[in-house]
Simulated assay, not measured.
Amino acid sequence: MSLMMVSEKLNELLRPPPGSGAKLPPLLTDASASSRTIEALHHFHKGPAFSSQKTVRIVMGKMVQLAFETPFLMHAIIGAATTHLCTLLPDNKAYRLAEAYHWQQTVKQYSQEVSTSITPQNMDKLYSACLMVSMHSFHQETFSPRSSFVFSPDPTALTWLRLQGGLRYLLERTHPWLPQSMWWATFMESRDPDINFDDDRAGRVGLDSDLADF
């Protein structure tokens, strides 16, 4: 697929659904908007977070393929990549605006899909988007141990935890079809009894110095 075809397909997928009444801000429709979207997709595909995990890397490739027929999943992918680009280029207003738009569309369209139907045909699309949203819930603009949810009286501080229940909801409703999922091998790896999730390092080893001091 040529770069021009990719750009046209992305524009088609990511424009607001007909009848939604939504209008894109100028920064998301100007001449450079398409190049930023392609840049974000490339950034996601080359993401270092997945490079060392072979099975996850394979699934991520399949996820990008699915996204080319699934607007809410493509929005999630572009949103995730743009969030990371925002951390690298915090003063870029266009990225900030794109990040907000793509995550807003992800949540809106994903919610509509979940409430309409969950089938063997769309379960991988839903799993993928759900995992992306769950990962995004851990993102923080700034980090301070003192602002941790542990010390916060604000009930919304636990939103990240409640969001993790989304995948369980999907798994419960797709249980008979799970072995057909492209995520099956990855899900089953997490159930391997030989995997050690404990960190037995002593003292401050591996801890952020500010967190250790705190």
Rank of each mutant, 00 (worst) to 15 (best):
W177K: 00
S2K: 08
L170M: 04
F44K: 00
W177Y: 10
P120S: 10
Y110Q: 10
M188E: 04
A129N: 00
D194M: 10
E12M: 12
A31P: 00
A98I: 10
P155L: 13
R146F: 11
T83A: 15
G21H: 06
P155R: 07
Y101V: 08
T82Y: 10
L211T: 01
V107G: 03
A76D: 01
L66S: 05
D192A: 03
S51E: 04
A81E: 01
R201E: 13
M132S: 05
Q180E: 12
S7F: 13
L89K: 09
T116W: 03
Y110T: 09
N196K: 13
F44R: 01
Q109S: 03
L163H: 07
G47W: 01
S134M: 14
I38A: 14
G21Q: 07
S134A: 14
L161A: 13
K23W: 12
S32N: 14
P176C: 08
L73P: 00
K108Q: 11
L167P: 01
T29H: 03
N122S: 05
D30H: 04
K62I: 00
R57A: 07
F214Q: 07
H175V: 04
G79W: 01
I58S: 08
V64Q: 09
D210G: 02
F68Q: 03
I38V: 11
G206E: 03
I118K: 03
L24S: 03
P48D: 02
P17C: 03
S209K: 04
L27R: 06
L3E: 14
L3C: 12
T29R: 05
Q140C: 13
F50W: 11
E12N: 10
S209Y: 04
L73C: 01
M4P: 13
K23N: 15
D200V: 13
A100Q: 06
S137T: 04
D199N: 12
S2W: 08
M123P: 00
D194N: 14
M63S: 08
